[in-house]
C-alpha cells in the first residue's frame, strides 16, 4: 500500500483557547509513578516536618492536616513546589497527587511560581460597584512586570464595607482611592505597613447605636 506523504504542517489543527495549565499536558513517560514518598528517600527539613506534625496532632486523622501542611509549604518555598509537596506528602503519608489535587482546588494555594508580595484586589459585586475594577487595573499597571509581586483580582474578601479594598500580604486595606495606589505599591516594595490609616484593623464600627455606647 502506498500513501502519498503529506506535509503535516498542512493539516489544520485545532486552535484552542485553553488557559488552564495542565489541560494540554501529557505525562512524562520516563518518570516513575508518584506513589507515597518513602521516608528513606525523601529528605524533609526538620522544621517543616515539625510544623506539619503539629498540625496533624490537632485532628483525629492525618489527612485533615493537608491544607495547613500545604500552607506551610507555600510559606517556606513561596509556592507549592513539587519538591515541597513531596515533602509534605511524605510526612502526611499521602501521595503527592492527592496534595496537588487539594492545592489546585483552593485559590490561595499557588501551584506555579509567583511573586513574594501578594496583593489580592477584591473585584466582586460590592467592590466593583465602588470602582474595584479600575483599582485592579491601576494596581496592575503600577506594579508592571515586577516579579516580586503577585497581583490577583480576587473573589469577595469579606470586606465590602471598605470597598474598594485589597488584601496586601494578608492585611486588609481600604477604601483605596486610585491616587493612593503608587504609595501603596511603594510601601510594599519597601516592606513598610501598607496605608496604615486605611487598615481594617483600625476601623471602628459604623453602627450608630454601637458607636454611641463606647
Amino acid at each position: 500500500m502506498t500513501i502519498d506523504p503529506i506535509d503535516p504542517r498542512r493539516v489544520p489543527r485545532f486552535d484552542h483557547g485553553s488557559r488552564v495549565p495542565g489541560w494540554d499536558e501529557a505525562v512524562d513517560l520516563t518518570k516513575d509513578p508518584a506513589e507515597v514518598p518513602d521516608p528513606a528517600t525523601t529528605p524533609v527539613p526538620d522544621d517543616l516536618r515539625a510544623a506539619i506534625e503539629a498540625h496533624i496532632a490537632k485532628y483525629p486523622e492525618r489527612r485533615s492536616a493537608t491544607v495547613p501542611a500545604l500552607r506551610e509549604v507555600q510559606e517556606r518555598y513561596g509556592w507549592c513546589t513539587p519538591e515541597g509537596i513531596e515533602q509534605a506528602a511524605c510526612v502526611l503519608r499521602l501521595t503527592p497527587a492527592y496534595l496537588i489535587s487539594v492545592a489546585t482546588f483552593y485559590d490561595m494555594l499557588e501551584t506555579r511560581p509567583v511573586g513574594r508580595n501578594t496583593i489580592y484586589v477584591c473585584t466582586n459585586i460590592s467592590c466593583s460597584l465602588c470602582g474595584a475594577d479600575e483599582l485592579y487595573t491601576t494596581v496592575r499597571d503600577e506594579v508592571g512586570d515586577d516579579p516580586e509581586f503577585n497581583v490577583r483580582s480576587f473573589e469577595c474578601l469579606g470586606a465590602c464595607d471598605i470597598a474598594p479594598m485589597a488584601s496586601v500580604n494578608g492585611t486588609y486595606v481600604g477604601p483605596i482611592s486610585l491616587d493612593e495606589v503608587p504609595t501603596l505599591v511603594q510601601q510594599v516594595r519597601d516592606g513598610a505597613e501598607p496605608l496604615p490609616d486605611k487598615q481594617l484593623a483600625r476601623r471602628r464600627s459604623v453602627d450608630p447605636n454601637a458607636a454611641s455606647r463606647s
Binding site: Y59, E61, S64, A65, T66, V67, R71, F105, Y106, D107
Partner: peptide
C-alpha cells in the same frame, strides 16, 4: 482550621470535606 480560599467551603458538607483535608 484555616481554609485556603474557596467559597464552596461555606456549604456545610463541603466544609466538612475541606476540614477532613
Amino acid at each position: 482550621h484555616r481554609g485556603a480560599g474557596a467559597y464552596i467551603c461555606g456549604e456545610e458538607t463541603a466544609l466538612l470535606d475541606s476540614l477532613e483535608g
